[in-house]
Amino acid sequence: MKKLFSRRGFLPGFGMTMGYTIIYLSLLVLIPLSVLFLKASTLSWEQFVGTILDARVLASIRVSILTSFFAACVNAVFGVLVAWVLTRYQFPGKRIIDGIVDLPFALPTAVGGIALTSIYAENGWIGQYLAEWGIKVAYTPIGIWVALTFIGLPFVVRTVQPVLQDWDLQMEEAAATLGATRFHTFTRVILPHLLPAIITGFALAFARALGEYGSVVFISGNMPLKTEIVPLLIMTKLEQFDYAGATAIATVMLVASFVMLLMINYLQWRMNKFDAAR
């Protein structure tokens, strides 16, 4: 046991901090989630599989995962761009822009959803021009994707920003003296450094998007099989007092999310090995 729980460092208190960690996680995460599993287990296996394999449920899982994934992808690219601009350059209004980045965190998501819907609807400010091109945003999966991108934006920016702030500019100079082009300097020197932070941000944005409800319900139109997301379906089941069915879907989502996050964390750990090797 001694070896399993290694205690290192100057500050004592492994027992106490670990104890609090477990109590804290239990009260807030583990116990509520295990109740979920308990409730789901009141269903028989056939009922459970039947609930999950329902075409409407499968479609909603597909919509949820795909839109969340693409939203996180967009945020991974543009979040890095925003973080880059905010750390590399000085310009008037920089602090204001820095503050705006956090707005999706603070704003009630329903407000964000309604605002996005009114702008991207076919008669909205932006939606009317997109409609000319034959692109419909509101009440389609694209709309869900826009809403999920909106709420996930701060994650990548806020995880990449500190890494960029600590970045040693001399590494770029070293690359330049060695004859590397700007493109090579970015792809071979800077990007590999940011990648662990980008993946963390991606994972957070993705996880947040999977669970998002408030902003999506307004812009998606909630058409079964087309633009219905898993959280909404769970809400629908609850409203019909089908608690076991709701928990069954929730359990599947939970396990799926957990597996995906675990994979992303593993990937990130692999990326980080140059620092972990210390």
Binding site: E173, V189, F274, D275
Partner: peptide, 19 residues
């Protein structure tokens, strides 16, 4: 700087940490 073909060594090495 890329075309000057000069070897430059920095005080704090500036090695690429991920390589």
């Amino acid at each position: 700087v890329r075309e000057r073909q000069v070897g430059f060594v920095f005080q704090h090495y500036a090695l690429f940490r991920h390589m």
